[in-house]
């Protein structure tokens, strides 16, 4: 990471700490904002957060690794999450998964070569009456068919 990038990141995190406070209870909100902007929480950011909240870097890492929606490694620009839990599974989520995998040329858990998409499974999204369900970034899509899923991806493209 370049010095200029580091400085910019530090400044950004300082502002977040200003906004949410130095208390440990601000940690997840700060991480969420970093994640949202950078699509991951870089090593350096983790250490800066630790420094400013006066906790250990390993504690920040420990928390990030606990929560599914936080990650230390960058993912694709668009994160596709397909619900794998029972109700969606029963509504033939597998067909949707197959279609998405075929369309993007990656398997679940992988990122496309152009880094445009990362595809993942997720646990119950609370859309069990509308399955199969899928989220692309913060937006949710319901009652998917393989065709519909592909269409959605193409719109994002």
């Amino acid at each position: 990471m370049l010095v200029a990038e580091k400085n910019a990141l530090t400044e950004e995190i300082e502002q977040l700490v200003e906004k949410y406070g130095k208390d440990r209870s601000a940690l997840l909100e700060i991480l969420h904002e970093i994640q949202k902007k950078h699509r991951s929480i870089p090593d350096f950011a983790q250490q800066e957060v630790a420094r400013l909240l006066e906790i250990h870097p390993v504690e920040v890492y420990s928390v990030i690794s606990f929560y599914t929606f936080l990650n230390t490694e960058p993912k694709g620009r668009n994160l596709v999450r397909i619900c794998q839990t029972i109700s969606c599974d029963m509504k033939n989520k597998q067909a949707v998964v197959n279609a998405v995998e075929r369309e993007l040329g990656v398997k679940i858990g992988e990122t496309t070569r152009d880094r445009k998409f990362t595809v993942e499974y997720t646990n119950c999204m609370g859309l069990c009456d509308q399955g199969p369900a899928m989220a692309v970034n913060e937006r949710v899509y319901m009652k998917l068919t393989p065709e519909k899923a592909v269409e959605i991806l193409n719109e994002v493209k």
């Binding site: 440990r24 209870s25 601000a26 420990s62 928390v63 606990f66 599914t68």
Partner: peptide
Amino acid sequence: IHLGHGAYVCGEETALIESLEGHRG
């Protein structure tokens, strides 16, 4: 409003509180 980050166990009330405090759930 405090946003969760994808952890079922945080529905357990003390895990939820841990999470609110910035810890693992």
